[in-house]
Design a protein around this nucleic acid. Structure first.
Length: 552
RNA sequence: GGCCAGUUGGUGAAGUGGCUUAACACACUGCCCUUUCACGGCAGCAUUCACGGAUUCGAAUUCCGUACUGGUCACCA
């Protein structure tokens, strides 16, 4: 009995060899230096911001080098699988203008290196496992979970390193005959990789972010195929897929760093060249209870899910900018120097990436978003607010459409100037900031917000003003009239003049403006009054003053 | 506990032996501009790079130790 017999017993129907697959998936004929990257999520729920960070880096790396970026569905854990997870991931990526070159979902497949769904690649994995068994680098293990659990406990008690290695790797030492007869008896088994390393020996591993790291060789006989669904574990699927799909760079979270020895051992068993690894730092969050940093969690932190940014209405490019800043902190500077360039042109450098965990700073995101929105044209703001509202605030969307002209005028307030106003942070905040400019909201909601600061005399003054008000083209013309009006009513035309001798005047022009602003908007703080008056119009002005008078 | 990594201001960080009296951005504070709020402008905000020691003419940058934080040690990825 030989390992060949064992391999045939386990995989009687597998006829293709590793070589066959090597020929089926030849080296990609890309130009020198082109990077092949992938985003390989497991479909277990909503997209996490850490995954998004790695997807963005993958994408930039590939696009920047005229390479290939593909999406692979790692669905080997059937127990945790969630329906439509890949669809939602594709939607999110699309939202951020990230388009995989190769992918497979909803029965559509694009690319020559598929299937891109791991559960459809079972035969391929089996051929590779069969090969390992034949060359004596893999074997069936019949240890039950209970046995393994017990062994682990004993190892802990004995203060030994835990795991399936050396003398603890019981099934490694069975004879081929024993292995075959157990299989024939129908005892369930996993396939384990026969490790080749010595834990006490170190090797140097070069990570593109962290640099050279000394790691112990792998002596763990890890499972590479599960007993129930015969699907590979992550470690093995990573080897087969990233090799056959000719991946050049693997971007993943630093939680994978400690399994690098396993992966290297696996690649060496086949004589394959491992990809370059980019282990990116975890995205952290300060834990409120302990005050310590911890991995950002989907359960505790809403901002961990990419869904959050869509619901809040952050423009995708703002989120990208914030994420890119985590990837390389010189991103902002670069972007300012290259305003016309998109993020895929950014020369991302793994070496420049911080090697410690990063906080995702929501305040910083707000600032980025504010700046970004201030650069948009009025129509763009309108379109984006509208499409957000259609999804998350339909009644506001209706109003925006019904009053589209007024809405666009509102979004134009202090926008067409060298330094545009920066008051919109995200679309979900817009309604509260501008609703007073629509009669519908103003007369319904703003009555209560008035503070009683205006005297009767002032109201009379404002009424007088409303009657002479006219729509000027420029602000200075308007303000000139306002000053004249102030003088006629014994108000100083400027605060300075007023201050020279306050007893000469009832007040100054600014005070009239203040009262006017207050009565017309219900707020003390608003954007430019001239532009607001233009939008409301003379009728609106009269109506609002009347409304105020009656309300008090 | 073993193995691995990290530790620069309120935050993200730049920095890889002298150009650093530690860049830039966010936040914060003050002043100016001003019909409000913003915007904008100016200024302030780490004599110091977790701590201790070593190497060196010289260290945030190299080495050793300590502390703390994080990751990992599944038939999960």
């Amino acid at each position: 009995m030989t390992t060949k017999d064992l391999a045939d017993l386990i995989f009687p129907n597998i006829t293709k060899t590793v070589d066959d697959y090597e020929k089926m998936y030849p080296e990609r004929g890309l130009k020198e230096g082109a990077k092949v990257t992938r985003y390989a999520p497991s479909p277990t729920g909503f997209m996490h911001i850490g995954n998004f960070l790695s997807a963005v880096i993958d994408y930039v790396l590939a696009k920047n080098s005229e390479g290939v970026f593909y999406l692979r569905n790692e669905d080997t854990d059937k127990a945790r699988e969630v329906e439509h997870a890949v669809e939602s991931i594709m939607k999110i990526l699309k939202n951020y203008d990230i388009y995989p070159d190769e992918y497979e979902y909803e029965n559509k497949i694009k690319g020559e290196y598929g299937p891109y769904i791991q559960s459809e690649r079972k035969e391929i994995y089996h051929a590779f496992i069969k090969h390992l068994i034949e060359i004596g680098r893999a074997y069936p293990c019949f240890c039950s979970k209970e046995t393994l659990e017990e062994q682990r406990k004993n190892q802990e008690l004995d203060k030994e390193r835990t795991g399936y290695y050396g003398d603890y790797a019981f099934c490694r030492h069975l004879t081929i005959e024993e292995q075959m007869s157990k299989i024939k008896e129908g005892i369930p088994y996993v396939i384990r990789f026969k490790s080749s390393g010595d834990f006490n020996k170190k090797f140097i591993f070069d990570d593109l972010v962290k640099g050279k790291i000394e790691l112990p060789e792998n002596d763990q006989d890890i499972p590479i195929m599960k007993s129930d669904n015969l699907l590979p574990t992550y470690h093995f699927a990573h080897l087969v897929d990233d090799h056959l799909m000719r991946t050049t760079h693997v971007v993943r979270g630093e939680e994978w760093l400690s399994s690098v020895p396993v992966h290297i051992d696996l690649f060496r068993a086949f004589g394959f060249k491992p990809p370059k690894y980019i282990h990116i730092p975890l995205i952290l969050k300060k834990d409120e209870e302990t005050g310590n940093a911890r991995k950002i969690s989907k359960r505790k932190d809403p901002e961990a899910s990419m869904q959050y940014y869509e619901e809040k209405g952050y423009p995708p490019l703002a989120v990208i900018e914030a994420i890119m800043t985590i990837a390389n902190s010189n991103y902002e500077e670069w972007h300012q120097a290259h305003p016309e360039s998109t993020f895929i042109e950014f020369p991302f450098s793994p070496k420049k990436m911080s090697s410690s965990g990063a906080y995702f700073d929501l305040e910083k995101l707000d600032n980025i978003s504010k700046n970004y929105i201030s650069t948009l044209k009025k129509e763009e703001v309108y379109d984006q607010v509208l499409s957000w509202a259609k999804k998350y605030d339909p009644s506001f969307a209706n109003l925006l459409e019904k009053e589209s002209l007024r809405s666009i005028a509102i979004f134009n307030i202090e926008r067409q100037q060298k330094k545009p106003r920066k008051d919109f942070v995200h679309w979900s905040g817009v309604k509260a900031q501008i609703s007073y400019l629509y009669d519908q909201y103003f007369f319904e909601d703003y009555q209560k917000t008035y503070a009683d600061i205006t005297e009767k005399e002032t109201i009379e003054l404002l009424k007088k003003y409303a009657n002479i008000y006219q729509e000027y083209d420029t602000e200075s013309e308007w303000f000139e009239q306002m000053k004249q009006f102030a003088i006629q009513n014994n108000y100083a035309p400027s605060p300075k003049i007023y201050q020279e001798d306050p007893t000469l005047y009832k007040g100054h022009v600014g005070m009239i403006c203040e009262s006017l602003r207050h009565v017309v908007t219900g707020k003390k703080e608003t954007p430019n009054l001239f532009q607001i008056l233009k939008i409301i119009g003379k009728d609106g002005l009269l109506k609002r003053i009347e409304f105020y008078e009656n309300g008090n």
